[in-house]
Each structure stands twice: as C-alpha cells, then as structure tokens.
Nucleic acid binder design. Sequence first.
DNA 1: GGTGCATGTTGATTTTAATCAATGTCATCA
DNA 2: TGATGACATTGATTAAAATCAACATGCACC
Lengths: 254, 254
Amino acid sequence: MTKVSSDFKVSVLQTSCRNCSLSSLCLPKDLVSTEIKELESIVSQLPPLNKHGHIFSQGENFSSLYVVRSGCVKKYQVDAEGNEQVNGFSLPGELLGIDAIGTGRYMSSAEALDTTSYCQLKYSKFEELCEKIPGLIKHILKMAGQELVAEHDIHKAISQKSIDERVAVFFTSLSTRLRILGYSGSEFNLPMSRHDIANFLGMQPETFSRSLKKLITDNLIDVNLKNIRIKDQDNLRLLAGHCETCPSNKVMNG
Amino acid sequence: MTKVSSDFKVSVLQTSCRNCSLSSLCLPKDLVSTEIKELESIVSQLPPLNKHGHIFSQGENFSSLYVVRSGCVKKYQVDAEGNEQVNGFSLPGELLGIDAIGTGRYMSSAEALDTTSYCQLKYSKFEELCEKIPGLIKHILKMAGQELVAEHDIHKAISQKSIDERVAVFFTSLSTRLRILGYSGSEFNLPMSRHDIANFLGMQPETFSRSLKKLITDNLIDVNLKNIRIKDQDNLRLLAGHCETCPSNKVMNG
DNA sequence: GGTGCATGTTGATTTTAATCAATGTCATCA
DNA sequence: TGATGACATTGATTAAAATCAACATGCACC
C-alpha cells in the first residue's frame, strides 16, 4: 500500500533548527543567525521512538520540554483506579511538557502512536536563553495559549455537542492542523485507535463507530480502516459548528 | 445576614504588590526589592468592577494580562449560534488573558460575578520585564501550566464522570482553592448562578439541581441558596474521584 | 411592602448514548 | 498460510440525562 501524504512523517535527517522543515512552527519569528545557533545549542534531537515508546511518563521529574518532529504523540493520564483519559494528540511542531513546569513533574504521559522523532529542550538552559532571545518568551506563551484554546474547544465540544458533531469537530480540526503542516487536509491516515479517539471525545468506542457510519451514509466522509477521506468539507465543518469569525473555532490540539 | 469568611473578598486598599495579600500567589518567589519595584511599575490597579462588569470581552485586541484581586470572575465564550460555554471561574490570585498572547485577541470574555477588583499588566512592558527578572518567566509558565492542568481535570470529569461525581469535583476543587486563599473550605457562598455551574460542568441546570438534592440526602453537603456547607469532605472527595467502571464502587451506588 | 421578573426546583416524558453481548476483521507470527 | 489476539463493528437492551412543562422562590424595583 502506498503512503498518502498525510502519514505525519517528515525527513529526520537534518540536525539543524535552521534547516528543519518545522522551523516556521517551532522557532520564534525574526531570529538572527547567532540566536538560532544559541537555540540549537540547547536542542537535542533524540533517537526516534517506535510505536508505544514514551517521551515521558506521568509522575517523572520534569527536566525538559519536547517538540514533536514527526509522527504523532498521544497525551494521556491514568488515575488511581486505572482509568485512562486521553488529553489530546500532538503533531509535528507541537510542544510537550508545559504543564510540568509549575509542578516539577510531568502531569501526563506522552506516547508515540507511530515511529516518532522529537527534539529535547533542557528547561534550565531554555530559561537562560529566554533572557537572551526576546521573542522566545512570547513564542512559548503563544504555544501555551494555543494549548489552552484547544482545551476550551474540546471542553465545549464534549459539554454541548452531540456525538456526530464531536466527531465532525475532531476530523475538521485534524484536517486543519494537517494542512498547516503541508499535508492533505482531505485525506489522511489516523495513527490512533478508535478507542483513543472515542476516549478523547468523551464517548464509547461503539458510539464512535456508529457515528462514523452515520457520517459515511450522510456522504460527509469515506472511511477505510485507518484511512479517512473528507468528501464534503463544508458540510462537515457546518456540522462541527465551525465558524470562521468565532474565536472558539481555531485549530484544536486533538 | 452576616458574611461568612468565604465571600471571596479581600481588602483592596493597598496599592503595592509588596503588601498585597496575594503576593505569595501572584509574585514569583525570591524577588529582591528593586525587582518588586519594577514589577509594581507595570502593574496598575484598576477601579473595581460591579457585578456583570467585564475585564475584557471576546474578540477585543489583546494588550494586557490581568490578575484577580478580589471577587470572582466568569470566563466564557459565545459561539456564532449564541451558545455560551463557561470555561471556568477565576478567584483572587489567578491570571487572565494568557490564551490571548498568541492570537492577539482575547479568546474569551471575563465577567465579574460580584464586585471584583483586579490588576492590569501591560503585556509589552511585561515582556521587557521578563528579561530583567529571571523568575518571572517561570512564574507565568507555572500559571499557564496550572490552567492547563485544570482544563485536563474538567475534560476528564465531563468525559468520564457521572453527574453527581462532576458536582462533587466542582465543590471539592472550589473548596481546595478557597482554603489556599485562606478562606473556609467547608462553608462558602457561590457567586455564580446554577446555570453557570451547570454549563461549566456540561449538564443542564435541572440536572444540577437534582444532583444537589442527591448530595444533600446523602449527607455530603448542606445547601441554602448560594451558601454551601460541606458536611463530609472525605466522602465528597471520594465521590469526586470515584469512577463508574471501577468494580468496587459499582455496588455502592444503589 | 407588594409586583414582576429572573432564577431555581420539581415532575413526566423522551431522547440519547452507555452497556451488554456477539460477531467480524485485520495484522502478526509461528 | 492458518491460527491467534487485538481491534472494530453491529445489534438489543438498559440507564442516564435532556427536554418539556409547570410551579416555587427570592430579589430588585417601584
């Protein structure tokens, strides 16, 4: 089977931030050459993880922030009773570990859903660098803000939207994020299981499955196992409740 | 009627960060005197708002972060169809506006539920100051992280927990936050309406009302209009962490 | 101190999604 | 390549909460 363009993979050969295909997402704007060098000096590109490998696990001591380079990462928490809550899915360019800065421990686990490469930023060095590179503060706060907006979106979706609407929200949001990364927004392969998506969207896997069926019969999407093809973006976004002028419908981390 | 200690009010007479009763929450640790002075120079204490007054409104251009000094603030978004989603309630010491840094516009509205005083931090000046005061970056990232953790908690609650459990989560969480502020964690007055709480917790007001009744008959709380008294912290917290799918808890529910 | 309106509660019914149970399908690996 | 187990779908039933409708209560404003 040939890979569609949205397998969430990028080349991982380069080791420089400057040449990284994600630099427009990952780096603050308008960095001068010396600043990029300084940033590169605190960024380590770690060996790629296989499926089920963990970038970090809930409860571990916080030391570094991470940026996804390729692949897809599941963020999740497990409570005392062993129940899992999927908090979201991180795509290339997205930052992991912000919520650990305050507590000193990772509050959630970050697991590769696929072969995943990523970069490490030692936090102690990062803090120093913030004082040297002005734009860096704004950049990380911007990324934190995006995460907050995404959380509000999913809060609203689970709180107020019907099952089919939530599924539409998931696909349209994923579609938008993939397009930003340069992939097809109309056809992509899901690296996560039905179980994980359902968990994230606050429903049972059976319910998610039935909703997929509904969206197919309504001619909004086509589904072939992991492969999703969006047939009617407009009506899918309409169902999702999407509205361009509405702040709550920006890109969502899920 | 005499005020109980948890009316979320603090004296608003002082104008210095140093003497502010919230300094332990609002300021980074270990600031030297000159640093506090610099911080004070960018913090303006604005005139208090009456009930329904807005600190900022969704869509307005971002310019400042705000810290609640006294009272209680409702964070909410309204979508194109006019549906409101309550994102949360901010108590004294909590920061507002982080999610606007990245987008340049406030993504939600912040409305006083009561007479509320607050401080303004011009963001442009704040960024400059971050370069001068090392701890400031960590402090704001810590507060952003706390907000993210809170969002994950509510996501999980709405996603997985039953109605009564969600209500228990709300009360125990509020109780904890009030105690940290030095108020009673076992008796307090709710500044927000049933409608707003229900909306925040992803349920209908009728359903919230019925759940309150249930918690009262189970002897976990007492309710007198806006006044809540927690009678059995232990079991309320147990309920808040309780999970449907956990076999040991299933039997007790009947 | 009424009057009117917003807020909150209660009851009956319907709708929705969870649960339970069975079956189907795919990928893995001997 | 066929057996195995994880993942996914489908159907029947139950449980939970939304909805609809009526009523009660408290509060703000005359």
